[in-house]
Design a binder for these strands. Structure first.
Lengths: 337, 337
DNA sequence: GCCTAGCACTCTGTGTTCCCGAGTGCCAAG
DNA sequence: CTTGGCACTCGGGAACACAGAGTGCTAGGC
């Protein structure tokens, strides 16, 4: 039903439309890509492609434009991910290597990706799930308050100020800290709740109310910040593009963590580092945009997702190449620290 | 030269133009605001105002529009800051009170301000300058690496992974930590450099190379993050407005920390909590936008700045009220923690 | 001297019409 | 199955007219 030439025509349409932003007609197509057939033949193929729903025409007599379905076929079967140039690779490497902490890694990554793709980049902070506890710190602020600092092996630091139910001396706080650390050091975050459950019993009776308060905050910290935090960059790149849904909707979505999460999607457990491409109406919200995303993280320890968001009319091969490359480099950086 | 009625006319023009977004003519003006004079008289006044450069007309025979100079006069002499409603005040209070740490305070503040003003809100993280050291932590990661965590009294936490020049045992690290804390606890960040200068001499000779490395990173941390970090929210509010300079420029500026800093401006030391209003061409970059900003922080300890950025055509009284109110509440919250 | 009414004038924005050209679909011939 | 030819469609730009809002100016009234 769709022979090779029809597929070639579809590929040509996608490529031309992406680069020119204008509906592409049969004549221009036959010329630019040497298809060795006449415009009339191309027209027949186009009619077939339109019949099948891969392309459409904005108005009766204009050129053709790919549909979401057309882009999908293009991405799946007609294109190859385009690798980055050597210069780009080196630039990425040196830029990311300069990061001083996790925050910095994430910030640099998101900017880098935005610049590289000229789209909006989105990066999710590594989740705590598979991380392990590196250190727990209790810093007395005054008699009734302590600051809880939780440091994980991914370099993440969580902090909470805790109001104690009663005054507790510094030495007793120090003791609790020691107990906490001996108990949790190196343990996976997911196992913290059970490890901690019988902990109050190992403390003197008078410390238990304070300990209970501290522990409840600790557990809260673990679940609350699970994988909530997402940052984006490159909003300026939206200015040029036109979205079927208004620009406003896109900007609003970018500031809604929840929506962004849904857009980035889940890392499928079987193929963790595979690129996910969601085109137009395939997206949960924001039907008019496409999302290219992938998981990243060190080794088999899949941590979080990153990707870019842009108009459906996007250079998928290049974008996919950039997303994949950046994800790899970030994973390396994270594994090294 | 500018009698009371002319000023009233200017005020009316600004108010009408801000609310309707259309050049305002003499007839509509005489009707809506009961000026008790005829359109013709208003026209004469308008001609005078235009002569002085307070208003202008987009084309011959359209209504008048305020110039930057006109807005300036309006803000300085013709308007009063509009206080928030009781409901709004309560909403702010409860929303900010729910914050769990400094990050959260800043995030909530910027979102709140964006929603309240329907503009882009910008918040600078409290600077470290006047902060004091609450605690310094050194966490051994392995034989050659430690993590430095610096906690300040403003609830800020800075962290760095440090590569040591040689292997150092955990007990020696613990000792360094103790020395560091005894030396720095409670001291102002600005005094850290001198306090730390003779510190290596108080350590055993064999620890000095490692200590030097750690100290250099510590000092770096202090200067580097000085007042660098700025966040914004509410970019979606830009979608409706029209800027003389393109939307793209505004979005780009928002992602440039340096530009944002310049836009927020300096806190003038004599009147720290005064509202700064920069209108259109008064701004260093982004000549087409206005910025309403103010310092915030606890008590006389002025910490950082926050504000909003929007089109020159902005409801200044309301915006100024919101900025002032939010700054006050955040200052309270910070003082309490 | 200031305010007002009237009037002629100048624009912008909008609606209409017209036409060109790109692009199509279809048909018949190779 | 491919190709050339042909009639058809429709969007978008140019030309044009027109109504309406708003102005500046001048002359008269308080």
């Amino acid at each position: 039903m769709l022979d090779d030439r029809k597929l070639a025509v579809l590929r040509a349409i996608v490529e031309d439309y992406v680069s020119t932003n204008e509906p592409v007609g049969s004549k221009a197509l036959a010329e630019r890509h040497n298809l060795k057939v006449s415009p009339a033949t191309v027209r027949n193929d186009m009619a077939a492609l339109e019949e099948e729903g891969y392309i459409t025409q904005p108005h009766t007599s204009a050129g053709r434009v790919p549909t979401d379905k057309g882009y999908r076929l293009f991405v799946d079967r007609l294109s190859q991910i385009k690798p980055l140039s050597g210069a780009e690779r080196r630039a990425i490497e040196t830029f990311l290597a300069g990061a001083v902490d996790l925050d910095d890694v994430v910030t640099r990554t998101v900017r880098l990706l935005a610049q590289l793709t000229r789209q909006v980049a989105v990066v999710q902070y590594p989740t705590l799930t598979r991380s392990t506890v590196r250190h727990v710190e209790l810093v007395p602020l005054n008699e009734r308050r302590v600051m809880l600092v939780l440091i994980t092996n991914t370099g993440r630091v969580e902090q909470r100020v805790i109001e104690l139910p009663e005054e507790v001396e510094d030495t007793r706080i120090a003791h609790m800290r020691a107990v906490l650390n001996s108990c949790l050091d190196g343990c996976g975050l997911s196992s913290v709740p059970e490890l901690v459950s019988d902990l109050p019993e190992r403390l003197p009776v008078e410390d238990r109310p304070a300990a209970a308060t501290i522990l409840s905050v600790l557990l809260e910290t673990l679940v609350e910040r699970h994988d909530e935090k997402i940052v984006f960059a490159g909003a300026a790149n939206l200015a040029g593009a036109d979205f079927s849904t208004g620009l406003r909707d896109v900007l609003e979505a970018l500031e809604e963590q929840v929506v962004l999460m849904r857009l980035l999607g889940e890392t499928t457990s079987d193929t963790p580092s595979a690129l996910t491409v969601r085109i137009g109406s395939e997206n949960p919200y924001l039907r008019g945009t496409s999302v290219v995303a992938t998981g990243y993280g060190s080794g088999d320890n899949q941590l979080a997702r990153l990707g870019v968001l842009g108009p459906t009319r996007m250079d998928y091969p290049v974008t996919m190449g950039a997303v994949r490359a950046v994800a790899r480099y970030v994973s390396q950086i994270l594994a090294a620290s």
